[in-house]
Write a protein that binds this DNA or RNA. Structure first.
Length: 488
RNA sequence: GCUCCCAUCGUCUAGAGGCCUAGGACAACACCCUUUCACGGUGUAGACGGGGAUUCGAAUUCCCCUGGGAGUACCA
């Protein structure tokens, strides 16, 4: 086999979708595993829907996921340009070749005529196939139409290509993930390869680019299967080597419909904004259709690449469920090096004045609050009581259920008295608090009730991080001021 | 409508004729740990869509049905 060259070819008509990210991942993994090249190509032939912001988003998202490309619009390569709109001058050349070889013909049909054909087909419950009305127009007829001001589109002659390279109308190919796939090309219909405005259609541009960029394997979603048959025929008509194809099942929403806005986030960047780690996202998405041979699901992209075989990928659709992604995200949050986590959490702490804490205090705060986080953004509501000095906002529940009780008041008074003499380092606090709880336990007060009183007074809440650590981070002065304020 | 693809616990999956009284992960539930919430630990429950066929033997092969998904553009 010659060099493995795969590509991801997103259309910048939206932010990078998780589905596209997964396709990109599988291409990347395949390239890695086979010492090949991973190429990024931007398919922006539809100027209407394209925007620079989307292009930037695609670049940024792919990079954030760690899916770095070897050739692409920004890094260049030997087969550029890698943006289709910059390649418009090369498509007509190949269209002309097909025209000369008789594999394409000019079509002067108007949208209205085409529409009528379609309606007729629907009425007769037949599959719509272009009538080939324009296949055999004479030069005079074409000239006449041209004089009327009609601009022709170019259609690919399916039957002619099929007959030239295959025995029957059935076209087959061996799919990398699904095995043999087949299609009766008589049902395909002569499709447009060059629009009347002179720009190529998707199916044509893709083939020309894949051919010129020497793409060896095309790995994409199964929504492209019917395109593949058309594309194979174009490759053959051009006398080009046909790449191998592999079609992945789709990612579906929990209701089994296409994953869309109404299901929540769809773009990688939206997941990131919500507080998902790209490491977790990419790991999760890898498990949609692929599973590790050693059963170890938490893996980096490079580790997955070692174990990856395209033939092992599941050919069925899979549903994008948040449960596992959330679990994985919290797992990654727990595993992240503390310095790294401290940085990544900062965007979600902007409502607080971080300068109130020393770096050591901030570190400790993150250490003791990271456990229950599912999303990075969960940190926002997990830490308000570390800020504000002597003052803390008391939640309703903490007031009525804890602070208003007699036991709590008693605990707080005793605590205030005793703690005056304590050193507020964690080690001391740990010992003293243990003794303190024991003291109350003797009186029949459960340890957790004792701690609840202190927690409610100091944090204004009924639950939160380890109490010893909180007191140490806050320091004696702030802690006791809060306790004092809670005593009636 | 037509064409194509797919089908194991709720979800992601392991399983390539006997190793399967179907394994794992997430979620659920129970218990344990515990200064709260969590984390963690230990368990429980939970699936081969249906019907035929082949075979000594089928989750695994074949056919039909059903269900789901996709395509059907001068969009990509």
């Amino acid at each position: 086999m010659s060099e493995v060259r795969v590509r991801i070819a997103p259309s910048p008509s939206g932010n990078l979708h998780v589905g596209t990210a997964r396709t990109a991942l599988f291409n990347y993994l395949f390239a890695k595993k086979n010492n090949g090249k991973f190429i990024l190509r931007i398919e922006d032939t539809d100027a209407e829907r394209t925007s620079q912001a989307y292009i930037d988003n695609i670049f940024d998202s792919l990079k954030a996921l760690g899916l770095n490309w070897d050739e692409g619009p920004d890094v260049g390569g030997d087969y550029g340009p890698y943006t289709q709109s910059e390649r418009f001058d090369i498509y007509p050349k190949y269209a002309q070749i097909l025209l000369d070889k008789g594999f394409a013909y000019e079509c002067f049909c108007t949208p209205e005529e085409l529409e009528a054909e379609k309606e007729e087909a629907t009425k007769n419950k037949k599959a719509y196939v272009y009538s080939k009305k324009c296949e055999n127009l004479t030069e005079e007829e074409k000239e006449k139409l041209r004089k009327e001001g009609r601009k022709p589109a170019l259609r690919f002659n399916i039957a002619k290509a099929q007959k030239a390279f295959h025995d029957s109308s059935i076209l087959k190919f061996d799919d990398l993930v699904k095995g043999e796939l087949h299609m009766d090309t008589d049902l395909l219909g002569d499709f447009v390869i060059m629009k009347s405005n002179g720009t190529p259609t998707y199916n044509f541009a893709v083939v020309i680019d894949d051919m010129l960029m020497k793409i060896s394997h095309v790995i994409r979603g199964e929504d492209h299967i019917s395109n593949t048959f058309k594309q194979i025929l174009i490759f053959e008509a051009l006398g080009a080597e046909v790449p191998r194809f592999g079609h992945l099942g789709m990612i579906l929403a929990p209701d089994r419909s296409k994953l869309s806005k109404r299901h929540g986030a769809t773009a990688v960047s939206e997941f990131v904004e919500k507080g998902y780690l790209t490491e977790a996202l990419i790991n999760f998405v890898a498990l949609l259709g692929w599973s590790p041979s050693d059963g170890q699901e938490i893996k980096t992209v490079d580790e997955i690449a070692q174990d990856f075989r395209i033939g092992d990928v599941s050919s069925s659709n899979s549903i994008f469920e948040y449960d596992k992604l959330n679990w994985m995200n919290s797992h990654y949050i727990k595993m992240l090096p503390i310095e790294d986590l401290k940085e990544r959490l900062k965007p979600y702490l902007t409502k607080y004045d971080l300068s109130e804490l020393t770096d050591a205090q901030y570190t400790r705060m993150v250490e003791v609050t990271r456990e229950p986080l599912t999303l990075l953004s969960d940190i926002t509501d997990a830490v308000p009581y570390f800020f504000g000095g002597d003052k803390v906002e008391i939640e309703q529940k903490a007031q009525t259920e804890v602070l208003d009780t007699e036991v709590s008041q008693d605990v707080l008074k005793t605590f205030l008295k005793q703690a005056q003499d304590w050193n507020f380092d964690e080690e001391t606090l740990h010992e003293k608090l243990e003794a303190f709880r024991a003291e109350y336990k003797e009186k029949g007060i459960k340890p957790k009730v004792t701690m609840w009183a202190i927690r409610a007074a100091v944090t204004g809440r009924t639950c939160g991080a380890d109490m010893t650590a909180i007191l140490a981070i806050l320091g004696k002065e702030h802690s006791l001021a809060r306790v004092k304020a809670a005593i009636k």
